[in-house]
Nucleic acid binder design. Structure first.
Length: 479
RNA sequence: GGGGCCGUGGUCUAGCAUGGCUAUGAUACGCGGCUUGGGCCCGCGUGGUCCCCGGUUCAAAUCCGGGCGGCCCCA
């Protein structure tokens, strides 16, 4: 017999649970015959579009202009920033022929768009009056992942939003880092995701950046899932791409730049992985393709009465709410319950003879699996408040889980045990690369960085060499 | 980078060691009946390039080689 997703445990068999759920809940179909490429089905696409709209709202509010840049760049442009090409060279797709002709100039398919946008920035920017420049685009980028691909988590075609900004001064660039973080924070909070905001260690920063800040969401298997990053590029790229502006006092300078990316597929993965349970998806109302489902419970001879009452209930819910009456007659209520729970619908209304007789509605909330009975007259108001309550509860649970996953370790062995138990280790580190390697080898996880949102002061010594620690860092396995 | 396991209707799966009958069963899907407060049941029907290419053989899902793809472990 086929294993239903509901037979799987999210924490024990995360991979199976996740893959089955993506398919059954019609998020993505991973059967497309090219490795690392999958089809976004209606529910995955709905969530993606909703995320895009949430993010676009934030980007527009803060003065970013949406543009669309080409898919490809050239060898020469791609190679302009030395560290950048070194970081991405091994995973870029290159187009070297058209039909039966070999291309004289090979085309590089974007793994990210710096080398596509910045030649244009060079043309657009002349004076300080052109700054700041803040643009963004929704795009797919392509990276030839050599490790095992995982749907939504590690793919070769990555749907994301990338923003790129240019500033006259270092302090304006720093200010922009804070704005970018605020934008992503606002969106992630709306989908109730728990994450760590980390400054990546130098050895793990974006190829070509001065420093990188990342949003690492927790995952039930103990790994962390990087859903967004903010990079301060300093002048590295503006020098390489010869972007210059004239200052107020007539000097020519290279501007400061930022780029930041928000991975839609990773965020979808985090929503499903963090909120879901052994019955399937649990969506916060902000992204739920369907927010309220009404299930009539027919009894022989009363079908009409029950259906009419269910329609009345449907009408008593405001039109802005995404609602549906599942009036199928050939499917039992039990099966509908399982189905809509798997699909993650936050609120279910059950209508049977009892409800008709009492002029009430049985309300089931997906997050806690609790039922209550509400008078028909109040159900519209009640449901809307409940949706907010559910969202708040999901946020609280995800934040708490994030905190519970973190454990302090004073020795490499303690850290190793934490990682083996699918948790995140908080350790002190001296900042030396050798020690980072010792940690990686002995602990089984890598240094993801130090907290950016709060200050944590090391009190003891480096977990690897025992010498003066420079920072408190988080060690985890990553996607 | 190294090692192990695996690929059979839409989905899951039996068969493979020891080659041989119309490739097994469940689920799904369609029609009909019965039912409906947590996946009910019964009947009939639909659905297969056994991952791909090549080889061995009278005969290959099964054996051999290569490829592609998936999962897991180690570095």
């Amino acid at each position: 017999m086929a294993t239903a997703v509901t037979a799987l445990n999210k924490f024990k068999n995360f991979s199976d649970w996740f893959d089955k759920l993506l398919f059954e809940a019609r998020i993505v179909d991973d059967r497309f015959p090219v490795k690392g490429f999958s089809v976004y089905m209606e529910n995955g696409m709905f969530i993606l579009r909703t995320l895009r709209q949430l993010l676009e709202g934030e980007l527009a509010r803060t003065g970013h202009k949406e543009m669309m840049f080409p898919l490809v760049t050239t060898d020469e442009l791609f190679a302009k920033e030395a560290e950048h090409i070194r970081g991405f060279m091994k995973e870029v797709f290159v187009i070297d022929r058209a039909g039966d002709r070999e291309l004289e100039k090979k085309l590089v398919v974007r793994p990210t768009s710096e080398t596509i946008m910045y030649p244009m920035f060079k043309l657009w920017i002349r004076s300080h009056a052109d700054l700041p420049l803040k643009v963004h685009q929704n795009s797919n980028v392509y990276r030839y992942e050599t490790k095992a691909t995982r749907p939504l988590f590690r793919v070769r075609e990555i749907p994301w939003n990338e923003a790129h900004t240019v500033h006259a001064t270092a302090s304006e660039a720093e200010q922009q880092v804070r704005e970018a973080i605020e934008i992503y924070t606002n969106v992630l909070n709306k989908v109730r995701i728990g994450y760590l905001l980390l400054k990546r260690p130098d050895f793990d920063k974006f190829a070509g950046a001065k420093y990188s800040i990342a949003f690492d969401a927790w995952n039930p298997d103990g790994r962390v899932n990087q859903v967004g990053t903010v990079h301060n590029l300093g002048k590295n790229f503006s020098r390489a791409f010869e972007i210059e502006f004239e200052t107020r006092d007539g000097r020519r300078e290279n501007p400061h730049q930022l780029c930041y990316g928000f991975g839609y597929s990773r965020v979808i993965a985090a929503i499903i992985a963090q909120h879901g349970d052994d019955r399937g998806c649990v969506f916060p109302s902000t992204v739920a393709p369907l927010q309220v489902v009404i299930v009539p419970i027919y009894f022989k001879g009363q079908e009409e009465v029950i259906l009419n009452y269910a329609r009345q209930v449907l009408d008593s819910i405001r039109d802005g709410v995404r609602k549906k009456l599942d009036d199928r007659q050939d499917v039992t209520p039990g099966e509908k319950f399982y189905y809509w729970e798997m699909m993650g619908v936050p609120v279910r209304l059950e209508i049977g003879p009892k409800e008709v007789a009492e002029s009430g509605v049985t309300v089931f909330r997906r997050d806690t699996l609790e039922r209550s009975v509400v008078p028909l007259k109040e159900v519209g108001e009640y449901v809307e408040q409940l949706l907010e309550k559910i969202d708040a509860n999901l946020a609280m649970k995800s934040r708490r889980m994030m905190e519970e996953m973190i454990g302090d370790a004073k020795t490499l062995n303690e850290a190793k045990t934490l990682i083996a138990n699918r948790r995140i280790a908080r350790v002190e580190w001296c900042g030396k690369l050798e020690c980072a390697e010792v940690i990686k080898e002995n602990v089984g996880g890598e240094i993801r960085g130090s907290r950016y949102d709060i200050v944590e002061i090391p009190k003891n010594g480096c977990i690897a060499c025992q010498q003066q620690a420079k920072e408190v860092v988080y060690v985890a396995r990553a996607y």
